[in-house]
Nucleic acid binder design. Structure first.
Lengths: 255, 255
DNA sequence: CGCCTATTTGATCTGATTCAAACAATGTGG
DNA sequence: CCACATTGTTTGAATCAGATCAAATAGGCG
């Protein structure tokens, strides 16, 4: 199933027909990115921003010692690198975790879109603020929790976000990551990751098989992870419009 | 010395008189925040955004196990929590590390400012993207480096940012943090922090005294830290204007 | 001086790494 | 269908980074 690039924006505030049309027009040019390849690489100066339409992507960096650190995942509907519009040189890489469909919007087009639709600009800005919020939680996760908690936390975050997109069946979901990837998320060796994974299994919290995760004790996992979904700001949505003064009008904000 | 709230914006792109005046007007209401007190607390719903005029602030979160994780520092000129305009409920706290002077801009006023000055909106958005970039580097730092490297990296980042503001004398600068604070930045116990600190001293890289840091071997510290300043995007500045099409005009972007 | 806070030290224990190898699952070509 | 390579997961043992607990020392400061 394909998630339109307006999907996440509309969770925060309903778009006008004109706004929706403008986004769709900007996203007209679709491309496929195969599993494991980079959509953008550290040091690149891409001339476009990417919207993920289908598949999983992740952002990562490589440290001088060769260790890879994954810093977040992107799911269908995410504006993966709108930041490249503002900061020309990539300071990290973005990789397709699965086969992906993306829309590449030339920066000139982005500029036009944001300029002509101030409400859209604010909604996309809002998205980038949510990304920041996730980064902060990852900083907390890496800095203040044990490896088993970190892994549990990651699983909680992924489940919650997939659930928001309706990509969960019962308590099971597809996780297109191997143990090397998971280890690179929570900052441990693969050997240790394997051990904490077994710990979570032994405690009856999750059951992880070939690319499939089943959460057998959600409450247990949440408390093991010290997980509090409020940093994802899922339920803030409906209110924010009102705050912005972003009613249904097509007119610019403020003034 | 006081850094005007336009200082950082102008590093990216010169403002028009009208824009500068609008920012100054919005920042008219100044407040003092004493050392150690919180400007905003996790769970709060502040009705204003804060611009730091003088002093140091930090953002932090407390994990369920009681551990505090600091996630970034803010220096004079930073728009500390513009994100509270978009995301009403704070998902972390902001603390005054030293006595601070701040301007509190009511969200309604923020809305007005961003609506009436699209160029300003983009420049402030740009700032928030730089914040994200720092968060990502901290994720890498915590996930992929040893404690001694993390500490060295923190010192490199702080020095570089202070240098940008002209707050360095020679190779010495004032660091208003005690070892507990430093430990909470790099995610280790205070005891261990003290030990890695001694390590850096013993290696002749830094000399840290009462709130003062002197970097005795900058190149050594940089390489020990695996520090690459490109994530701070200091030299990207002049170019970006051109990219935005944000000349000197006061007219809205795009169109 | 005596009090308070911040830094330093020592000893012990645990979480996590490393190296090395075994094992399981999948895919490929003969 | 088997032999084989390939990739991903699991196990063991030795070692190291970092936590914890407890106490000592060093600076400010009233």
């Amino acid at each position: 199933m394909t998630y339109l690039p307006t999907h996440k924006l509309e969770l925060v505030c309903a778009l006008t027909d004109a706004e929706r049309a403008a986004v769709h027009a900007a996203c007209a040019h679709e491309t496929s990115i195969p599993t494991g390849s980079d959509m953008a690489r550290d040091g690149d100066r891409p001339g476009f921003s990417t919207v993920l339409l289908e598949g999983w992507a992740c952002r990562y960096k490589i440290a001088g010692n060769g260790k890879r650190q994954i810093m977040c995942f992107h799911l269908p509907g995410d504006w993966v690198d709108i930041h490249s519009y503002f900061i020309r040189t990539m300071d990290h890489s973005v990789r397709a975790v699965t086969d992906c469909r993306v829309a590449q919007i030339p920066h000139l087009r982005v500029r036009q879109l944001l300029g002509e639709h101030p409400r859209l600009a604010q909604l996309i800005w809002h998205q980038t603020m949510l990304d920041s919020s996730v980064f902060r939680e990852w900083v907390l996760n890496l800095g203040a929790r044990r490896a088993d908690q970190r892994l549990a936390h990651l699983l909680c975050e992924v489940r919650t976000r997939l659930n928001e997109l309706g990509m969960i069946n019962g308590e099971a979901f597809e996780l297109p990551l191997n143990q090397v990837d998971l280890a690179d998320c929570i900052g441990v060796s693969t050997v240790h990751l394997n051990r904490v994974l077994q710990l979570l299994r032994k405690r009856g919290l999750v059951s992880i098989g070939r690319r499939t995760v089943t959460i057998t004790d959600w409450q247990g996992l949440v408390s093991a992870a010290d997980f509090d979904a409020s940093y994802l700001h899922l339920e803030d949505g409906p209110f924010t419009c009102e705050l912005y003064g972003l009613g249904e009008a097509t007119t610019a904000v403020g003034g």
